[in-house]
């Protein structure tokens, strides 16, 4: 996997990516207030999760409704480790993110196992059920909030401690930049895979499994790799989420409604390009708060914003179906 090969690949548009990165790093912090810095930090984190879903569905053809599960597992592991370790020590926080990502990746492989037997709607149902399982588990054990014991839950609100952030990014603006950098790195990892041997294998599996087999591709291995990588990305995002909200983490981020909302916005954003993940994160974390908080008649938006998202999703699916019929991909 060579750097030149990645940078020259059509999935990576250096000018646009560079401009967006510099805009996020230097322009946004100087023009946005604290509330919107908070929302855009959440957008950077959500974009990683959305990219993991989009990669699985758009590049490998695997419909997973369970990506909130590794997101939640990564959050729990990283938060737990952050309270246990001396995070401000340089270099520790990235290791915690990687640890959260790796544990999530192991669970991702477990989620991926049914994918070897089922596909399409059945896979969607199986992965949704696994997400529900993780939701139930997180409901029972809660996210750590600086309390004692293995679970680390502080039951009295006054006993809660904010989750430590990396020493270079303790403030909200610095942490926003940190989240943007991590999101950038995660996207680059995704592009690196897509631009190399696994990406080509995934494209082959996605288009036709018989053809992939006839090319000597070990379909089992590459499907599991896709689930593992996607779960790793979601797990890293989970760790960032913990440090983002500190002691205010909520498992509502990882429940079944969040799972369905995630796939809805990812489909609306588009699954054929990683840019779709950025758009999906924008819909979910910027547009929705903007409609419900800033637009006149916010009660209306509060009530109907999700309905409008649903309509948008239906239009998107109808258009996609028509496009697929036109290409002869559907009968």
């Amino acid at each position: 996997m060579r750097v030149g090969q990645v940078l020259s690949h059509r999935a990576f548009q250096p000018t646009l990516v560079g401009a967006l990165f510099l805009f996020a790093m230097f322009v946004m912090p100087s023009v946005l207030d604290a509330t919107w810095i908070f929302n855009f930090t959440q957008m950077a984190i959500y974009a990683i999760v959305a990219a993991s879903v989009g990669m699985l569905y758009g590049r490998v053809g695997l419909v997973s409704l369970g990506q909130v599960a590794p997101y939640g597992i990564g959050a729990w592991v990283t938060i737990r480790l952050a309270y246990l370790t001396d995070v401000p020590y340089p270099g520790v926080f990235p290791l915690l993110l990687i640890a959260g990502g790796l544990v999530a990746a192991i669970f991702g492989l477990l989620i991926g196992l049914p994918a070897l037997r089922v596909s399409g709607l059945y896979l969607a149902l199986v992965t949704l059920l696994l997400a529900v399982g993780i939701e139930i588990a997180l409901n029972r054990i809660k996210l750590p909030t600086g309390g004692p014991g293995f679970r680390g839950v502080a039951f009295a609100i006054g006993d809660r401690e904010p989750m430590p952030r990396p020493f270079v990014a303790d403030g909200d603006v610095a942490f926003f930049r940190y989240a943007v950098i991590v999101a950038f790195v995660m996207f680059m990892i995704a592009v690196a895979f897509l631009a190399s041997k696994p990406g080509r294998a995934w494209a082959s599996v996605s288009q036709s499994e018989p053809s992939a087999l006839a090319s000597g591709i070990n379909i089992t291995r590459y499907k599991l790799l896709a689930f593992g990588l996607a779960a790793f990305m979601a797990g890293v995002a989970g760790g960032l989420y913990g440090a983002h909200v500190q002691s205010n983490s909520s498992i509502a981020q990882f429940d079944r409604q969040a799972a369905l909302f995630l796939i809805a916005v990812v489909l609306m954003g588009g699954i054929t390009s990683l840019w779709g993940a950025v758009l999906a994160a924008f819909f979910a974390t910027i547009m929705l708060p903007f409609l419900t908080q800033n637009v006149i008649g916010h009660n209306f938006w509060n009530d109907f914003a999700l309905t409008i998202f649903g309509i948008g999703l239906m239009i998107n699916l109808i258009q996609t179906t028509k496009a697929m019929e036109k290409k002869g991909l559907l009968e």
Binding site: R200, A201, A203, S204, Q207, P210, S211, A214, I217
Partner: peptide
Amino acid sequence: RRTFQTVQAIESLTVYENVLTVHEHA
């Protein structure tokens, strides 16, 4: 190795990448 009645060349890849995919796996 084989071809198929319905062409199975991978739509999202280049011609070079299509052939490369077979060579690097098979």
